[in-house]
């Protein structure tokens, strides 16, 4: 993980069997993401952005090509090693938050630390810190049912960042939120990106997110149609 690139993708091809044929989801994708990037994979539905996010997250394997994530070549690693990579070095943010309803904010955020076998006292400190970053200190003991959509997503962000991963993958994180909450969430994430140098990769077609991105990779029919760098994001 000494490499300055957190993700390096070379000539990635991803095909899915459909009937007797194959559907090509990604074709000859070559990319790299540097540490601390705030990048969006943008494109219409079926353009391959979620597939690419899956492959970077080790949830799916490439048909051809190589994918190196945080110094690990994913096609050479077992499911267990990929799970370990996700657990230790990645964070995930989902469109539907996916918080565990019977646990409090504190406990939801604590889960990745428990999986990483962090000591209880250290866990408490780290959870409080993460919750403070997202501005939910007063909701530590609340359960998801008592939170608004924005607060749920902030809890999910805290859960994704609590173990200070190098890379956060977010799939449409603002899709279920109104404009105000979307901006609030994005501001939190840009702040984290700045303070912790955590790399963010979003899969989105939400204009509100795009305003905050410093790099936008346009995907069209499984291919990169444009790799755009933005010096001064509007957000």
């Amino acid at each position: 993980m000494q490499n300055s690139a957190v993700v390096t993708i070379n000539h990635l091809l991803k095909q899915f069997p459909v009937g007797g044929d194959y559907f090509t989801a990604l074709k000859d994708v070559t990319l790299s993401f540097a540490r601390g990037e705030f990048t969006g994979l943008v494109g219409p539905s079926g353009s391959g952005k979620t597939t690419l996010l899956n492959i970077i997250g080790g949830l799916d394997s490439p048909t051809e090509g190589t994918v190196d994530v945080l110094g690990k070549v994913l096609d050479n690693t077992s499911h267990g090693d990929r799970a370990l990579l996700r657990r230790k070095h990645m964070g995930f943010i989902f469109q539907s938050y996916n918080l565990l309803p019977v646990y409090t904010v504190f406990e939801n955020v604590e889960l990745p630390l428990i999986l990483n076998k962090v000591e209880e006292k250290e866990r408490e400190k780290m959870v409080k810190e993460a919750v403070e970053w997202v501005g939910l200190t007063d909701k530590l003991n609340s359960r998801p049912a008592m939170l608004s959509g924005g607060e749920c997503q902030r809890t999910a962000i805290a859960r994704a960042i609590v173990h200070k991963p190098e890379l956060i993958l977010a799939d449409e994180p603002t899709a279920n939120l109104d404009a105000e909450n979307s901006h609030h969430i994005m501001k939190i994430m840009t702040g984290l990106n700045r303070e912790l140098s955590t790399s963010f990769i979003f899969a989105t077609h939400d204009e509100k997110i795009m305003a905050y991105l410093r790099r936008i990779i346009h995907l069209d029919d499984g291919q990169i149609s444009e790799d755009e760098r933005i010096e001064h994001p509007q957000g």
Binding site: L59, G80, A83, R86, R87, F94, N98, L100, P112, L115
Partner: peptide, 16 residues
Amino acid sequence: YGEIGMRLAIGESKGQ
């Protein structure tokens, strides 16, 4: 199902 999916995604192994 959803909870299990989330746990798998955030890095819990299938065995765990």
